[in-house]
């Protein structure tokens, strides 16, 4: 009894300054992204007042959709402390597969491709969890494998899609000309938000990301949750690939490859820590908007698009440096 009293007292004493520090950190990670987003929008609106007109707002949101779908899924994997580097190449593979299968399967190609991608994610998650191989390595291997599959299936060429099967991904709806893609992404984000808010999933994800042994001891379904995160991430990647096909009327083996860095950037810029255990869908939405608005802002400011990669690289490093929870890493490898 006295022992627990003492340790309790000690931990309270010891934690007092750390708690405020972590609280400050959390506040910073919550407020900063929104401030950045507001500042960016304000800056662009001042430079070019047309930016805030309904039509251009819809266009900007529409262009954010593939990134949003990819980032929502990949965020779950980062939340449990892993990373999924295969999302972009999975999206490319999905674009090729859906373009190849639409002539035979019609509209059914969409769910089939999403299921194929989900199975790819299941494989990656299972290897990561069962063989205990670091997730970045499994998904790096996956990146190569899915690119290979896409190259092989397409013969390294662009596959055109004809017909109206995928028109639902890229039209305008109603009197306000709302892009259908924005509604789809909004629905997906809402589903994510509802599941995270009203089921224990969020608690499992956060607890695994914060301290996996503790989560395991507490009886959380660690293995299942981790694998599920990879499956959802891959399924979202597949869906994002399909949305891209709707825009370009073609599938190509490198269609989405350049999206990997923006996805990671969006997630960490939104305030989800790369170390896991801290983050959520709302932050990811903010992060995706920041990246999208920044891209628009760069073109408004007249920056050449070849500088974009440099800028993503700097942004990823800076955002990770700011959001990372160093208390979790005894050694940084």
């Amino acid at each position: 009894m006295s022992v627990t009293d003492k340790t309790g007292a000690f931990s309270r004493l010891g934690d007092a300054p750390r708690l405020t520090q972590s609280a400050r950190r959390q506040l910073l990670l919550t407020v900063m992204p929104m401030v950045v987003l507001a500042a960016l929008v304000a800056a662009i609106a001042i430079a070019n007042p047309n930016f805030l007109r309904a039509s251009s707002v819809w266009t900007v949101l529409d262009s954010a959709v593939p990134l949003m779908i990819l980032a929502s899924g990949a965020m779950l994997v980062i939340l449990v402390g892993g990373i999924d580097l295969s999302v972009a190449s999975l999206a490319s593979m999905a674009s090729v597969l859906v373009a190849l299968w639409i002539p035979a399967l019609g509209g059914w190609a969409v769910p089939v491709v999403i299921i194929v991608c989900a199975l790819a994610g299941l494989l990656q998650g299972a290897i990561h969890v069962v063989a205990q191989v670091p997730s970045f390595l499994v998904t790096l291997g996956g990146l190569a494998v899915w690119s290979g599959v896409a190259l092989l299936a397409s013969g390294a060429s662009t596959i055109p899609v004809s017909g109206t099967t995928l028109d639902w991904t890229f039209t305008r709806i109603g009197a306000w000309n709302v892009p259908s893609a924005v509604l789809i992404a909004a629905a997906l984000v809402t589903v994510f938000a509802l599941v995270l808010a009203f089921t224990p999933v969020r608690r499992w994800l956060i607890s695994i990301g914060s301290s996996e042994p503790a989560a395991l001891m507490a009886g959380a379904p660690v293995t299942q949750t981790k694998i599920a995160a990879f499956v959802v991430s891959a399924a979202c990647a597949g869906f994002a690939g399909i949305m891209l096909v709707g825009r370009t009327y073609s599938g190509a083996p490198t269609l989405a490859d350049s999206l990997l860095l923006p996805v990671v950037a969006a997630i960490v810029v939104g305030g989800t820590a790369i170390t896991g255990g801290f983050g959520g869908i709302g932050r990811t939405v903010v992060g995706v908007l920041i990246i999208t608005v920044l891209r628009v802002g760069l073109s408004v400011a007249g920056v050449d698009s070849s500088y974009e990669q440099i800028f993503y690289g700097v942004l990823v490093i800076a955002a990770v440096a700011m959001t990372i929870d160093r208390s979790k890493l005894p050694f940084v490898k």
Partner: peptide
Amino acid sequence: LLSTGLKIPSFMTTLGMSAIGIGIATV
């Protein structure tokens, strides 16, 4: 320097550096 100074895992810093390198090369 970024990995050791800012204490960022190397796969993250080098992923960023790769993008920077490709960007500079494109320019």
